[in-house]
Write a protein that binds this DNA or RNA. Structure first.
Length: 425
RNA sequence: GGAGAGGUGGGAGAGUGGCUUAAUCCACUGGUUUGCUAAACCAGCGUACCUUUACGGGUACCGGGGGUUCGAAUCCCCCCCUCUCCGCCA
């Protein structure tokens, strides 16, 4: 969330930022509540100070044999007043907090202003050697390929769970596992991350910490009986690893990479765009998460993007980097690059990764701080994350790009030591 | 799921209604002293919020939330977590 002090001092900047994200701003209400809140605090704390000082006098008076009935009665009245103010204060603070939790993060100044995805900016494009987006070849799409080669079973997935729960079969399952292991190993060996294998169910606090709650509740699965949420991304448990902690300056940056299954309800998004892997309720993802010092976070964002790109270069899958405009930016993000991989069958780019800088937005919600050696007061870290990458979308591009004219799939070179086979037929 | 024990400041640990709005020790930071280091001694030592131009002042926080009381770490109620034993189980 945003700092209430910052909102108080820069209401116009805040309003402008929220509007650029196409969200309604209720900043004037927030400021109103904030003012009421502070007025009450001043009053109630004054009373509490009186209560404390008188209370400490009472035992002394008793000892001296003085009559305390008048003071006691007076203090009873003070206590009642305090209770009244406290109740009122709690109501206001709850209301204020609820509103603050729904205010999105502000876009960074380097983010292009725009209404929606159409105004995103393509930053760069990478194609494997000799590859062309224009092709006369006939491409089967990943659903057809998966069916023909018996490696993906969407129908049976729908039978056992529902639509959007794909089953990987035979070499398809092995390929998926290979992909996950390859990506993890690559980030561990070529980049320096610490591996985390987190819980896939988290509590409400964690979901609030990274910003999925309260706003995105409809898109989250929820296990009512235990008040737990299946994670929509490993970002949630990994970022929350250090919730309510004060780290040392030299502990930073913290760079984590972890695999998890991801669960998303994707409420209201059935139809064409949901074919096969394009929109699923459960998928696998390797996620990178960083906790960094504020002054380094925008450099680190570029690093995360480049770390994700390295995977695609190694796999030789065509991709492009897209800088999201303000209108397409997610609730918690200040700046975000999407990485899109090429689907020759769909003849379009598919989002396979999203790399974001959240600045101190999540850190403030989750209270993740660090202390500079020279300075005493703890500061919020900046948090970032990026998919490195989501296997579902990646699998679409991989299968389609690596299909041969015979309808078989060639396994990318770098994956072969993980799969143990070089062709799927 | 059942029974029991426990959760206090960075760590250890005291504290069962007001001479404690948390003792003491260790760690940490600064200082004094001493050829150097160490030791010793002195001082400081958390987080959040409110207030103040500033120096400063105030309030809250002893797992979380309620309650009793003029006053709660301490008493009462609910919840969470950890540990031990039993049961069940991949």
């Amino acid at each position: 969330m945003l700092d209430i002090k910052y909102i108080r001092e820069n209401p116009d900047k805040v309003k402008k930022g929220i509007e650029a994200k196409n969200e309604k701003n209720r900043i004037d209400e927030v400021l109103q509540l904030d003012e009421e809140r502070r007025e009450i605090i001043v009053q109630v704390e004054k009373l509490k100070a009186i209560k404390n000082s008188v209370s400490s006098q009472i035992p002394k008076m008793k000892k001296a044999g003085e009559d305390t009935t008048a003071v006691l009665a007076e203090m009873k009245e003070v206590s009642n007043q305090i209770n009244g103010f406290d109740t009122k204060l709690r109501d206001i603070e709850d209301k204020l907090n609820d509103m603050l939790m729904l205010i999105p993060n502000l876009p960074h100044e380097s983010v292009p202003v725009g209404k929606n995805a159409e105004e995103n900016v393509v930053v760069r494009e990478w194609l494997p050697e000799g590859f062309s987006l224009e092709s006369d070849k006939k491409f089967l799409d990943h659903v057809e390929l998966g069916k023909k080669l018996n490696i993906l079973d969407f129908e049976r997935g729908a039978k056992i769970s529902g639509s959007g729960f794909p089953v990987y079969m035979a070499k398809g399952a092995t390929l998926e596992r290979a992909l996950i292991n390859f990506m993890l190993d690559f980030h561990l060996n070529e980049h320096s991350y610490t591996e985390v294998l987190p819980p896939f169910l988290v509590n409400r606090e964690s979901m609030k910490g990274t910003g999925q709650l309260p706003k995105m509740a409809e898109d989250m699965y929820y296990i009512e009986k235990d008040d737990l949420y299946p994670i929509p991304t490993a970002e949630v448990p990994i970022t929350n690893l250090h919730r309510k902690e004060i780290l040392n300056e030299n502990d930073l940056p913290k760079s984590y990479v972890g695999y998890s299954a991801c669960f998303r309800r994707e409420a209201g998004s059935y139809g064409k765009e949901a074919k096969g892997f394009l929109r699923v309720h459960q998928f696998n993802k390797v996620e990178m998460v960083k906790l960094v010092k504020p002054e380094t976070s925008y450099d680190e964002l570029e690093n995360i993007v480049s770390d994700a790109e390295d995977i695609l270069k190694a796999l030789k899958i065509p991709y492009r980097i897209v800088l999201l405009c303000t209108g397409d930016l997610s609730f918690s993000a200040s700046k975000c690059y999407d990485i899109e991989t090429w689907s020759p069958a769909e003849n379009k780019w598919l989002e396979a990764s999203s790399c974001s800088n959240f600045e101190d937005f999540q850190a403030r919600r989750a209270s993740i701080k660090f202390r500079r050696e020279s300075q005493k007061k703890p500061e919020f870290v900046h948090t970032l994350n990026g998919s490195g990458l989501a296997t579902s979308r990646l699998m679409v591009s991989l299968l389609e790009n690596y299909q041969t004219t015979k309808g078989t799939i060639e396994v990318p070179e770098v994956l072969r030591k993980y799969t143990g086979f070089s062709i799927i037929d």
